[in-house]
Write a protein that binds this DNA or RNA. Structure first.
Length: 566
RNA sequence: GCCCCCGUAGCUCAGCCCGGAUAGAGCAGCGGGUUUCUAACCCGUUGGUCGUAGGUUCAAAUCCUGCCGGGGGUACCA
């Protein structure tokens, strides 16, 4: 990692030496034994320059001697150069942290669109839906926070044969109007349909026919459809609220109903779409693309998700003129997006940057999930269980817990744990869901971060901190090792944010916050803050204020919430 | 068959894109720490042929190739 300080050193050095490359590739090593900054570039260029690595490293050290912010440097091992900065220089790094403690002003440029969550209407959210929902929200949060004009879009599965099935089920076995049904009762009807289907295959045709009538505009069915959507949205919004997710544009697939025909025409006219087997409209890709043929319209002339995705892209470009569109969808759909992105290029559309932000699938220790059979692990169930477990722990601890609202605290901890479970790991990996690790409340977990925040706030309250981070007149005397290590982590925050955003990897931020907590807690344990003499006390309170601010700022980008005490 | 992803400590995972110093955490295990600002914490310790075999390199968990094991995708589901 290269940061501002290293860049300034590099700039300084490059004036002395023409081999600019010699001084790049600084890293921030763990601990302090290898300095604050380190570089192996002497090793790398030894052969090229024809001088031994150690000699080059020594040469670099000689130059570093003259750099004001460098306290000392050394040649280590086969030719590493390790650099220790002066306490002044280290503390000065906090200047660069200051600006990112506030949301950046939104820049006046073409927007970035992030699509995520993608729930199905008429079914409750399963635990696996949390992946796209939370990963997408935190990526959108990062963009927005860092000053990008950000548009958050949902893409509901609110159209398709499932409505035919549901309508048939309701007609035969329903006991009350849709409006009065809960989302779980709708699911029960859906499951029953599939049960009964085994004995009565005619149900299938009935469902298809019903959906066809819905598509044709049957008024009664349209009203039914609207009610189903309303019931689902209601349940959905309650969950989004608990997860601190807000998606400003809740678009359903049905919205694109009238936009597909012109695109199909356009594709056929341009020769990009062709007639395939059984009357389907397909797109065949150039051989060198090595992509299998994709169906664009079914043989019975019904549309499919590919068709709606064309419409969705067209619609968003026309409405927002974005400079990038991101799709947070699990990696099972990688091929689909490859085909989709290639196809729209073949249509000759003027396109923004299109990217599929893929993530791994959620797996389960025991049971496999299938909505049709009804053995779905519902997100709400998991959140409720997490809440209940947190509540139990709070009760067990009794007076040791500092809170005047145990319910709210239990919610923060419980829901936070589940979110943290998703966001603390590399999104590309599959996630194994098990209650133990998802609902863990110590170690690398949401409550640990929340507790550390509460702790830092408590110190700041007692230290009568006035809410400002004043960097002038900070004492540099007697910087302890734990302060040193804490500072090193603090000053990386701006880069972490940028890295998490640009790589679309929220776990970089999560893991950073965890490390920050570890450093702060070590510091807290070994160095008195409030009891230390005046010049130290001021500095330590300042460090604490940075910790507190970064934890809250960073954590909220990850959909976490923080108690002032716990 | 072909394509994509994954394989790191008993368990859950960082690190891999962009190669560097003894491979890091958390949980579980063991041993310590509270006259001090919140012990949901901290400190120490046990535990790893980084799936496997080769290759490239001064240097490989990291890059390349083969193989094994797991997952996903592969024309009318999304």
């Amino acid at each position: 990692m290269v940061h501002t300080l290293t860049q300034s050193i590099t700039a300084f050095l490059s004036k002395q030496y023409s081999t600019h490359d010699l001084f790049v590739q600084w890293t921030v090593p763990d601990g302090l034994s290898h300095g604050h900054l380190s570089t192996p570039s002497a090793l790398r260029f030894a052969k090229e320059v024809g001088v031994s690595p150690k000699e080059i490293a020594q040469m670099m050290c000689d130059v570093l001697q003259g750099v004001p912010c460098v306290e000392r440097s050394e040649v280590a091992g086969p030719g590493f150069v390790n650099v220790w900065l002066t306490p002044e220089a280290l503390l000065a790094q906090l200047e660069d942290v200051l600006p990112v403690l506030q949301p950046q002003k939104t820049r006046d440029e073409d927007p970035v669109i992030v699509e995520y969550s993608q729930p199905n209407i008429a079914k409750p959210l399963g635990i696996h839906h949390i992946m796209s929902t939370i990963i997408g929200q935190s990526i959108a949060n990062l963009y927005q926070y860092l000053g990008y004009n950000t548009i958050r879009v949902n893409h509901f599965g609110d159209w398709g044969t499932q409505f035919g099935k549901l309508a048939v089920a309701l007609e035969r076995w329903g006991e009350k109007p849709v409006k009065d049904c809960s989302i779980d009762e709708l699911l029960a009807l859906y499951v029953r349909f599939h049960d009964e289907l085994e004995n009565d295959p005619t149900l299938h045709d009935a469902a298809r026919d019903t959906f066809r009538r819905l598509e044709e505009g049957d008024q009664q069915l349209r009203a039914f459809w609207k009610d189903v959507v309303a019931v689902t949205m209601d349940a959905l919004n309650r969950l989004y609220e608990r997860l601190h997710v807000s998606i400003e544009h809740p678009h359903g697939e049905s919205m694109y109903e009238d936009m597909m025909a012109p695109i199909l025409e356009e594709g056929l006219r341009k020769g990009v779409f062709t007639k395939g087997e059984k009357g389907a409209v397909v797109i065949e890709f150039p051989e060198e693309m090595k992509l299998p043929t994709a169906v664009v319209q079914k043989g019975d002339s019904a549309t499919i998700y590919m068709t709606r995705d064309f419409a969705q892209i067209r619609y968003r470009i026309d409405r927002w003129h974005p400079h990038a569109m991101y799709y947070v969808v699990d990696h099972a759909q990688s091929l689909h997006f490859q085909q989709l992105f290639t196809a729209v290029k073949m249509l000759g559309w003027e396109l923004p940057h299109l990217e599929h932000i893929a993530f791994g699938r959620m797996r389960f220790r025991e049971k496999s999930m299938s909505t049709r059979k009804g053995n779905i692990l519902k997100l709400e169930e998991v959140l409720d269980e997490a809440h209940a477990r947190a509540k139990r722990i709070i009760e067990e601890r009794g007076d040791a817990v500092q809170t005047d609202d145990p319910e709210a605290l239990a919610e923060m901890m419980g829901v936070g744990s589940v979110i943290y479970g998703v966001l603390s790991q590399n999104r590309k990996q599959d996630v194994t869901f098990d209650w133990g690790s998802f609902l863990s409340f110590d170690g690398n977990s949401a409550p640990y971060v929340q507790y550390t925040y509460a702790r830092s706030r408590s110190v700041l309250r007692k230290g009568k901190w006035n809410g400002e981070h004043v960097l002038s007149n900070v004492s540099t005397a007697d910087l302890s090792e734990t302060e040193h290590l804490l500072l090193k982590v603090l000053m990386q925050f701006p880069h972490i944010l940028e890295e998490a955003r640009s790589s679309h990897m929220p776990h970089i931020l999560t893991n950073y916050l965890f490390e920050l907590c570890q450093r702060f807690n070590a510091f807290y344990n070994s160095d008195p803050i409030l009891q230390s003499p005046p010049p130290l006390k001021g500095r330590r309170l300042l460090l604490t204020s940075f910790v507190s601010q970064i934890l809250k700022t960073g954590g909220e980008l990850l959909c976490l919430r923080f108690p002032e005490s716990m």
